[in-house]
Write a protein that binds this DNA or RNA. Structure first.
Lengths: 217, 217
DNA sequence: TAATAATTTTAGGTTAAGCTAAATATTTAA
DNA sequence: TTAAATATTTAGCTTAACCTAAAATTATTA
């Protein structure tokens, strides 16, 4: 199995395991990677034989320490390249994912570490997601969803839970970027939408759907 | 044929065609890419069908305009990444080739162009090789081999014709880097080795073998 | 809890990119 | 100019990563 493909499977399993403690089911991964379930079964067997995942027929898979290490390294590379693309090359946060998706598979440890240093060893990527350090440790930022904040409170935007370009572009239009000061002015009982002000300037309503995808603290 | 592999074949054919006007023979490419001749024949057929090379059985292949464009773009990416690795990440010139060999296959035109701009649109890579611009034009530097320089002349080192780490490391040891001022003090008739002084400081003999792989003007 | 639905696995097929060995073509040299 | 050497191609095999369709298992619900 090429390391490129292996990394994609392990990363997908890692992400799925973050959402669902049980582990990752065949169909979860098939959907994530746009392949068929039968292909995933095959991959699971190989990854199991290699000691990268725990695989038992019909059960959700989980990562071994070794498998998790590969997944986390891949995430590290992905997020470091995202910082590079935004900070150094001037890309917008909705443009960088596909490029980072390729760059993350370039495997030279020295390259990754020098890139990290060049970028100032960032702890978060342009979407506010934590960048694991070279030992696989993630910075904790204890953020919560914007929907959990009470009326009257002011918080700083720290991240997002949806990374689609359309969501990111909408946030741009609203002036909602990482670090923005958001004050909860009101919650509409009817649809749970919230009235917010941003940096004490603009004021507008956010649907619950949107507020649920915004992280803050 | 994956673009990764396609680019490697086209780049190898391009390089071979630079050396030998006839074009590239099956065995040339097999050796360059460390695959067997039969594999190359197969690849030639596919590249021919795609309109990227002119292929006729038993003849040397040459690139079509389309094939050359792909090869040159790949070289552009390779050399830009090399500049990045040296100028921004602090790698040495003998360390960068394998990394650039991977990075060159990340295909996002906007990434390439922004990288170029970030680097100041360099015209030469860390080995002194010209970086084609986005239209495929190479800067000309009219360099000649050090062996072509007459006694008494002083020239600046502009490039090298051998890119192996051992050669590069040896040049480092001698203090021979791009831009070094080299004065030809003497030519030894016996073995054609030359006595040089570098930046008016050190003086030493260079074998013809080495001098032949140093470019200057 | 038995029937139905959903999920996963198995079996067998395809394609790309490699391989070896044998056949064919070209080049070199006697 | 023909024989030998070298180079290239063809034929057929292998492996990885995908696929579909059918079989097997697990989960859901009437």
């Amino acid at each position: 199995m090429s390391s490129h493909i292996e990394e994609n499977y392990l990363k997908a399993i890692y992400k799925q395991t973050e959402r669902n403690k049980d582990g990752a089911y065949t169909n979860d991964i098939a959907n994530e990677l746009n392949v068929k379930a039968a292909t995933v079964t095959e991959a699971f067997k190989k990854l199991g034989d290699k000691g990268l995942i725990f695989y038992e027929k019909y059960k959700a898979v989980t990562l071994t320490d070794q498998g998790r290490a590969v997944a986390v390294k891949t995430i590290r590379k992905h997020r470091l390249w995202e910082v590079f693309l935004v900070e150094k090359l001037g890309f917008k946060w909705d443009e960088i994912h596909p490029m980072a998706e390729e760059l993350e598979h370039v495997n030279f440890e020295e390259l990754t570490e020098r890139l990290a240093k060049f970028l100032g060893n960032p702890e978060f990527d342009p979407h506010g997601d934590p960048i694991p350090d070279k030992n696989g440790k993630f910075a904790q930022n204890k953020s919560v969803k914007l929907t959990a904040i009470n009326i009257g409170k002011t918080v700083a935007m720290t991240g997002i839970e949806n990374h689609t370009p359309s969501f990111l572009q909408h946030l741009d239009k609203l002036g909602l970027k990482l670090g923005a000061e958001i004050t909860i002015k009101d919650v509409v009982e009817f649809d749970q939408s919230i009235l917010v002000s941003v940096n004490n300037k603009k004021e507008f309503y956010l649907s619950q759907e949107i507020a649920n995808n915004i992280l803050c603290k």
